[in-house]
């Protein structure tokens, strides 16, 4: 799949933002006043920046409000509702902490649950697609969830952040490994795609000499040759290095900022791979994946 910057930024930034907001909402970091302004501000900025980025790839963004209508059937629509609902519900919690120095555990907890639901709906946009076997698995929501929880804990500077980061790294490695086999395991081949029997089938000639939307969007092969190196870089930056930074440096904003920068870079690389390595079954018709 084409690793469009808009969707990479959308899923990474909003995932981290909602993860941080959830951490704050659950009262795991009971901050008030200026500190609350900083933490809630970062959470909101990341979540909103991510959501705005998601509109960049739309063909007709002026109609984006229509995306709220089909929540009964569409995960993308549910994602819209969940993100707006959690941001709105979190607003009084944030305002209370910043301006009145008051914590609201009940409302905060509710908003935090909604934040995690938002991350889940985001992941289901990808996990629901049977056409992309690598995504169509419980590891996709689990991976997005893990990113949000570990990223949120890291940004909030929680003591258990290094452990969560290392667990996330292990899970990323697991999902890389299991994802590699899934296309073959599902049994999609050019023979099932065309129904042609009685011999080995291969693509002889594509429909057009040039490229097309389907090939640009769903048959992304550029950069896959570096996939293994990028996986290592992603794992190191997402998990190992920020965990080491948090353990080695004295706790404080500097350590958090350095670890978060590494983590963000790793998450962007990991999400680039999430798209670039995902193979769509339509590639079979074009004789490549």
């Amino acid at each position: 799949m084409h690793p469009a910057p808009s969707v990479i930024l959308f899923t990474v930034l909003s995932g981290m933002g909602f993860g941080l907001l959830a951490t704050l909402g659950f009262g795991l970091l009971p901050v008030t006043g200026w500190a609350a302004l900083l933490f809630y501000g970062v959470g909101y900025a990341l979540a909103v920046a991510g959501l705005l980025a998601s509109t960049f790839h739309l063909g007709n963004p002026q109609r984006a409000l229509r995306a709220f209508t089909q929540w009964r059937s569409s995960w993308l629509s549910r994602e819209g509702w969940a993100s707006v609902a959690s941001l709105l519900l979190m607003a009084p919690v944030a305002a209370g902490a910043v301006f009145m120095g008051r914590l609201m555990p009940v409302l905060g907890g509710l908003a935090a649950v909604l934040c995690l639901v938002t991350v889940l709906t985001t992941s289901m946009i990808y996990a629901q697609l049977k056409t992309v076997p690598r995504w169509n698995h419980w590891t996709t929501p689990a991976l997005f969830f893990g990113h949000a929880v570990a990223g949120g804990a890291l940004l909030a500077g929680l003591g258990n952040a290094p452990v969560l980061l290392l667990l996330l790294g292990l899970f990323m490695a697991l999902s890389f490994r299991t994802g590699d086999r899934r296309f073959a395991d599902r049994g999609h081949t050019l023979a099932t795609a065309t129904g042609l029997r009685g011999g080995a089938v291969r693509s002889f000639a594509p429909p057009h000499t040039g490229t097309n939307y389907l090939m640009r969007e769903m048959i992304h092969v550029v950069g896959r040759k570096h996939a293994l190196k990028l996986r290592v870089i992603a794992l190191l930056c997402v998990s190992v290095l920020p965990a080491l930074v948090l353990l080695a440096l004295p706790s404080g904003l500097v350590a958090i900022a350095l670890a978060a920068a590494l983590h963000l870079a790793g998450a962007l690389v990991g999400r680039w791979l999430f798209f670039a390595e995902a193979e769509h079954v339509v590639g079979l018709y074009y004789g490549r994946r």
Partner: peptide, 12 residues
Amino acid sequence: CIGCGLCAWACP
């Protein structure tokens, strides 16, 4: 149609 492209992704 907002042109999000998700339906094209969903079509095998």
